[in-house]
């Protein structure tokens, strides 16, 4: 049994368009299991259900049927065993970077000097110790997302859930954050469930890539580029990278081609 599993998970909801009601089948009997210490990437076109799958695993949405298992027990709702990194960081704008990281820790019941020290340690982990007292609007997009990562890591979850966390960033910032994420994962050994629509990102980060399409799993591809992946530039230029990228591209493309 992995760190997080979705067992036979389906999700449907009603979309009201004027007087009509469309029943949307967002997920159809999804089964996936993220192993301990693994980075699993969900990829697919918009509307394929990858974010819904992550939100159900996180506990922000309920499955219409099926169950979510974390650390061997069935869960409902959010808990400290899972930490979420939001698509647009979603820092609380009235709190400083440090206070944002402290927020999750406070919710977990931490108080006093330990609270501040722990938050600072995680800010340091993402390279933002010097910006601890800035408010979110005084941070760049990349810095905000680092605080978001620190906030999620600080509560020491079993699994880190990341919902297209680098999608809104410019290419250079995205690349450096990808490198840092791999670095942090190497050091902390965290299990990560990562949603993206970026093919390169999937290949660079993933141990396994789940290609999704119309609420179903199209294919699960093991991405066996060597770890640790310290030199991302070299990996990007490697033949293995190109081959893996092409393989996933075909899986994605095949998904689209069959619709014609």
């Amino acid at each position: 049994m992995g760190a997080v599993s979705l067992v036979d998970v389906s999700k449907q909801f009603d979309l009201h368009v004027g007087a009509e009601v469309h029943r949307i089948q967002a997920l159809k009997r999804i089964n996936l299991s993220v192993s301990d210490g693994e980075i699993m990437v969900l990829i697919g076109p918009s509307g394929c259900g990858k974010t819904t799958a992550l939100r159900i695993a996180m506990g922000l949405e309920r499955a219409s049927r099926g169950k979510v298992i974390v650390g061997g027990r069935e869960v409902e709702g959010c808990d400290f065993d899972r930490g979420l990194v939001f698509q647009h960081a979603e820092l609380l704008p009235w709190l400083t970077a440090l206070q944002n990281v402290m927020f999750g820790l406070e919710m977990k019941g931490m108080r006093g000097a330990e609270l501040r020290d722990t938050a600072l340690r995680y800010l340091d982990l993402v390279g933002l110790k010097d910006s601890a007292n800035r408010r979110p609007h005084q941070l760049s997009g990349g810095m905000k997302q680092r605080v978001g990562i620190a906030r999620a890591l600080a509560i020491d979850p079993k699994v880190l859930m990341m919902d297209e966390p680098f999608g809104a960033l410019d290419a250079q910032t995205r690349e450096s954050l990808q490198g840092e994420l791999l670095d942090v994962q190497q050091r902390t050994g965290k299990t990560i469930l990562f949603v993206t629509h970026d093919l390169d990102e999937a290949v660079l980060l993933a141990d396994r890539v789940v290609v999704m399409r119309k609420g179903e799993i199209q294919e699960i591809i093991t991405c066996d580029l060597p770890r640790p992946r310290g030199d991302l530039a070299a990996i990007r230029g490697s033949a293995e990278f190109a081959a893996m990228r092409y393989r996933i591209w075909k899986a994605l493309h095949g998904a689209q081609a069959t619709t014609h």
């Binding site: 996180m58 922000l60 959010c78 808990d79 979420l84 979603e90 609380l92 009235w94 927020f103 919710m107």
Partner: peptide, 25 residues
């Protein structure tokens, strides 16, 4: 909604969400 989800993701109670997220927002 996303700010309220920050509260929920970090297991904040309804009253904490009200005081620490909704009130300042």
């Amino acid at each position: 909604k996303s700010l309220i989800e920050v509260g929920r993701a970090f297991v904040a109670s309804d009253s904490v969400i009200l005081r620490r997220i909704i009130l300042p927002a």
